[in-house]
């Protein structure tokens, strides 16, 4: 058995990035993700990689763009208000089809909000977040181990599709310590012939998202949408618990999914047929899983969504269900998190 060590979510993400071959990290201080920036400041130079504390989130994401354009694995991290600032760069990265990993350890909003755990940036992460018709691949870990694992997936998917990937966690996940088995180092990096490495022996490469010629942008946008359709078709991921026989299915992601799991167990003890559907990819949203459930189930099934927000993923669940089943919701954000008792009470009402 591999040795387990205690690590916070923030540190586990940092160590995974180092092991996944992250060459460049730029960040800016903001709670509750500071331990990740500090971890990278310590670890990256040890591995002869680059760490830069940027002057702003705007600069940090642009530095990541430069490193990514150089063909290197690049990463930044922040928390909600900082991620808002990064949207400029994320849109450029998406438009220039550059891979990178962005970690958002979410806190309460809007505005400066507060530093308690929250899931209020779901819309921002899954809809694009910045200007233009684009998406980022969004992964939502629910444990320190999964946060570690999904960093590898995030880099790999991002490279494969040349699209930014986001790890969407909440403050609790970032701060929490759990036993972790670290991945052994592996570095199966794809070649990047588009990278800016100097034009020796080839024609010059250009990394850009600007199209001055008439029709050029529309052509590009169509290609981009095709890519997104491919991602939607191939990369939906979720975890299901007791889905086969359940009549009430809780839908939750990240830390909130763990609380939902306790609710499922409690309902089962009361003789209710309850299950959990936990999206792991938030974009692409695992809509096919809902389709399958609704197709299979002739008898009544209903969904109950719980989030540390006032109902954001809820909209994707409703879109997937499309009126074919009841969808109820309970969420809180900015202070307490939705507890087992509160959720149970609402389900049993």
């Amino acid at each position: 058995m591999s040795k387990k060590i205690l690590m916070t979510g923030n540190e586990a993400i940092g160590e995974a990035a180092v092991r996944a071959g992250c060459d460049f990290y730029a960040g800016y201080p903001i709670t509750p993700q500071n331990e990740l920036t500090a971890y990278m400041a310590k670890r990256m130079p040890e591995e002869n990689r680059v760490f830069v504390q940027a002057e702003s989130e705007l600069a940090a994401i642009s530095m990541v763009m430069g490193a990514s354009a150089s063909g290197r694995r690049a990463m930044t991290s922040s928390s909600s208000p900082g991620i808002s600032l990064k949207q400029e760069g994320i849109s450029y990265l998406a438009g220039a089809q550059l891979p990178c990993l962005i970690v958002n350890i979410m806190r309460g909003g809007p505005g400066l909000g507060n530093i308690v755990p929250a899931q209020s940036d779901y819309f921002q992460a899954t809809r694009g977040g910045g200007h233009g018709d684009y998406h980022c691949i969004v992964l939502a870990p629910c444990s320190v181990q999964e946060a570690h694992n999904l960093v590898f997936s995030g880099f790999a998917l991002s490279d494969k599709y040349r699209a930014p990937a986001i790890i969407l966690g909440d403050g609790m996940l970032g701060q929490m310590m759990e036993p972790l088995v670290v991945h052994s180092k592996k570095k199966n990096l794809s070649t990047k012939p588009w990278a800016l490495t100097g034009c020796k022996g080839r024609r010059p490469n250009i990394v850009k998202s600007f199209y001055m010629q008439e029709g050029g942008l529309e052509e590009f946008n169509k290609a981009l949408q095709k890519k997104y359709a491919r991602i939607k078709e191939k990369e939906q991921r979720f975890e299901g618990i007791h889905l086969d026989d359940s009549e009430i299915i809780l839908v939750a992601y990240g830390t909130q999914a763990r609380i939902a799991r306790v609710v499922v167990e409690a309902l089962r003890k009361k003789g209710k047929k309850a299950g959990l559907l936990r999206p792991v990819t938030l974009w692409p949203f695992p809509a096919d899983a809902f389709e399958e459930l609704l197709k299979k189930k002739r008898k009544k099934v209903r969904f109950f969504v719980t989030e540390m927000s006032y109902g954001q993923m809820l909209e994707d669940v409703r879109l997937a269900v499309n009126g074919r089943a009841a969808v109820d919701f309970y969420g809180r954000a900015g202070g307490g998190i939705p507890t087992e008792e509160e959720i149970l009470r609402r389900i049993l009402q």
Binding site: V64, A67, S70, C199, V207
Partner: peptide, 23 residues
């Protein structure tokens, strides 16, 4: 006639930092 990168308005030196530090 050489490799070129776009940057968002004002961020050229941040992008350049990312390129030069990695290369």
């Amino acid at each position: 006639n050489f490799d070129c990168c776009e940057a968002a308005h004002g961020r050229a030196l941040a992008v350049a930092t990312g390129i030069k530090r990695t290369q």
